[in-house]
């Protein structure tokens, strides 16, 4: 039986930039253990010399000329942005002082 403790849950939550409460971490921890346990079933399969799948249909590179074409105008583009300033998307500090 795999166990995924709350510390691991909080670690992966941080990897996907997800805020998480102590209570949520506990609920997820129980659920993850049984799901991961189920996945361990794959260990039964002999995959020696099997090439992992990497594409599903057309394994071809698709190339095109790098041409300048009209794109969405800035005003239209920014319509969905929560905060803008002078035609830019505004966010708080990205690089902290620490």
């Amino acid at each position: 039986m795999s166990t995924i403790d709350t510390k691991t849950v909080k670690h992966v939550a941080n990897l996907v930039r997800l805020g998480i409460s102590e209570e949520e971490a506990q609920t997820f921890s129980g659920q993850f253990s049984s799901i991961i346990d189920y996945f361990n079933m794959l260990n039964e399969v002999d995959t020696e010399n099997v090439i992992p799948a990497s594409d599903i249909a057309n394994a071809e590179n698709v190339l095109r000329e790098d041409e300048v074409k009209p794109s969405m105008n800035r005003e239209e583009f920014l319509k969905n942005a929560p905060q803008t300033e002078r035609g830019y998307i505004k966010v708080p500090t990205v690089l902290g002082e620490e």
């Binding site: 995924i4 691991t8 849950v9 992966v12 939550a13 990897l15 996907v16 997800l18 998480i20 949520e24 997820f28 659920q31 993850f32 799901i35 991961i36």
Partner: peptide
């Protein structure tokens, strides 16, 4: 959605 994203990060970590 939260469950699946976290399990995905776990499987890739």
């Amino acid at each position: 959605v939260k469950r699946r994203m976290m399990l995905g990060a776990y499987a890739l970590s």
